[in-house]
């Protein structure tokens, strides 16, 4: 069994690549493919809370795991998670291709370290390439999210 965004799946090909399974079979196309060799971070998903590169995994690697994709972090009524809202408010989004991976990486970071320094954010997102933003406003967004999460 594999759990994705709260739904359980039982029937799948163990040799199927996780990124393709999510995109093609489950239509969860928020998971992006930028390099397909594990060096750009666009395909990041959370596996048992850890950010992992779905282009480097097969379904046999994630059996009995709980997977969260970018489609799975807002509330069912569409209310955004504070990390998502902060990305919007801080202007951290341009072309948006890196955004799902960035948001999930930041989400995992803040779960572990609710009060990161800017340098710690920089380190946490080093595996996620962004060609548009120079990362400045992405780091602003993560700091803003940390602020808002801790004041709630």
């Amino acid at each position: 069994m594999i759990t994705v965004n709260g739904f359980n799946y039982y029937d799948y090909d163990l040799e199927r690549k996780l990124s393709l399974w999510l995109r093609e079979d489950l239509s969860l196309t928020g998971t992006k493919i930028g390099c397909d060799i594990g060096v750009c971070g666009s395909c990041t998903v959370l596996i048992d809370g850890e950010p992992k590169l779905s282009c480097r995994l097969k379904l046999k690697d994630v059996e009995n795991c709980n997977i969260i994709t970018i489609e799975g972090i807002a509330l069912p009524d569409g209310t955004l998670h504070p990390v998502q809202q902060a990305f919007i408010d801080a202007g951290a989004i341009q072309c948006g291709f890196c955004t799902p991976g960035m948001v999930l990486t930041a989400y995992a970071l803040l779960n572990k370290n609710p009060h990161p320094t800017r340098q710690e954010v920089r380190l946490a997102i080093r595996g996620n390439l962004c060609r548009c933003t120079g990362y400045q406003q992405i780091i602003d967004a993560v700091m803003l999210a940390a602020d808002r999460l801790s004041s709630n």
């Binding site: 969860l28 928020g30 489609e71 998502q84 919007i88 202007g91 989004i93 948006g96 955004t99």
Partner: peptide
């Protein structure tokens, strides 16, 4: 941004 919500939710 008019596309921010769509981009941040996948």
């Amino acid at each position: 941004r008019n596309d921010a919500y769509a981009k941040v939710t996948g």
